[in-house]
């Protein structure tokens, strides 16, 4: 899977969050970090779009939407029927959003200071995705990066890496597969023999745990199905 991250941030070079995200991709393959400038070549941008499978629009939330630069980019690049019928050139590709905001996560929702959920606020992007027949990914929203703890930053970093490179990032089994693939990659790059043994041990443990969990879940589903057949109901009691 190839991923294109389109970054629109009016003060990109001063943004600690954007620098954090850019640096977090350093060890990953098949990801293109693509900051957009006020002047861009529409043809080149379209070529980039069609040469990737997952497109991520990344921006800070400005007045409940994207900064003007991102809006202009969408209007110009997706416009002029490029992404619409009859070919639907973007069909089945994925579209994700990475949105940063200085507001707290708890502020969003009915009856809360911001009144609306982030899903509601980002609905125009979801509508756009539907219009061009792309697949809309659950938005990746980062609240108050500067207030996060070191532990939260570590989690954020791997969540972001997975948002960019894991085709199955929302499922625990998919996340496990991603960690296994990353461990294998690291093993190939390490030169310290002790570290290689450690990584191999972690890999083996994670892999056998995944197999064990899969077997247990299969057994459990068999027991549940048998219970439903025996009781003649759907197993809910």
């Amino acid at each position: 899977m190839k991923t294109l991250i389109i970054v629109a941030h009016p003060q990109r070079n001063e943004s600690v969050t954007q620098t954090f995200f850019r640096d977090s991709l350093a060890n990953l393959d098949n990801v293109t970090w693509h900051p957009i400038e006020p002047q861009f070549d529409v043809k080149e941008e379209r070529q980039l779009l069609i040469s990737n499978d997952r497109i991520i629009l990344q921006f800070p939330l400005y007045w409940y939407s994207a900064p003007a630069l991102m809006k202009k980019w969408i209007d110009d690049v997706f416009g002029d029927t490029f992404a619409l019928a009859p070919e639907f050139v973007m069909e089945d590709r994925e579209l994700g959003l990475v949105v940063t905001t200085a507001s707290a996560g708890d502020d969003f929702g009915a009856g809360k200071p911001e009144q609306f959920t982030m899903s509601e606020i980002l609905r125009p992007f979801e509508a756009m995705t539907k219009k061009v027949k792309m697949k809309y990914l659950a938005p990746f929203v980062v609240h108050q990066f500067g207030y996060q703890t070191e532990e939260q930053h570590e989690q954020l970093l791997t969540d972001y890496q997975q948002y960019a490179t894991n085709s199955d990032f929302q499922d625990f089994s998919g996340q496990t597969k991603w960690f296994l693939a990353q461990l294998k990659n690291k093993m190939n790059k390490l030169d310290n023999e002790y570290d290689i043994i450690m990584v191999q041990s972690l890999y083996d443990q994670l892999e056998s745990g995944q197999d064990e969990l899969k077997d247990l879940q299969w057994t459990l589903s068999m027991i549940k199905n048998a219970g439903e057949d025996k009781n003649g109901n759907n197993g809910l009691d």
Binding site: D23, S24, A26, N27, E151, H153, E154, Q155, L157, T158, Q161, F179, Q182, L183, K186, L202, L206
Partner: peptide, 10 residues
């Protein structure tokens, strides 16, 4: 740092 964070989350 990305590798350090990776192991912590792993």
């Amino acid at each position: 740092y990305p590798d350090q964070a990776f192991y912590a989350v792993l």
